[in-house]
Amino acid sequence: MAVTENEVIFSLYKDQPIYRDLLQDFVSCLDERVIKSRAAFENESWKDLASLMHQLRGAAATYGYPALAEIAGSVEIASGQAAVPTESLAVYIEEIISTCKKIEAGMELT
């Protein structure tokens, strides 16, 4: 099946060969980050979720994926609130999963 441009996300550094291996490593570990985040969400471990999202936010910004950094930042802020908005968080987590899939698709094309 053909992949449209809307379904993929590329790193800002995709054209710089020196970062290629590191980008591949980062993308291949996204699954692991997502699994841990989902588990923290399901267990309502808000502190852990905030911490995981903080790391993802920083790493995504570093690796040139601002869209992922932005959503992770939203989850970090929401999970740090006194009354955690679980419904909104569920939506955000789904958004993170779909963004990661687009990033993986983008990596396959580069």
Binding site: I18, Y19, L22, D25, F26, C29, Q55, G58, A59, T62, Y63
Partner: peptide, 17 residues
């Protein structure tokens, strides 16, 4: 000084360059 190892790896490469 950063607790995320992948972030560290990126900065190490970029700044070594």
């Amino acid at each position: 000084v950063d607790d995320d190892r992948q972030t560290c790896a990126f900065w190490k490469l970029a700044l070594s360059e």
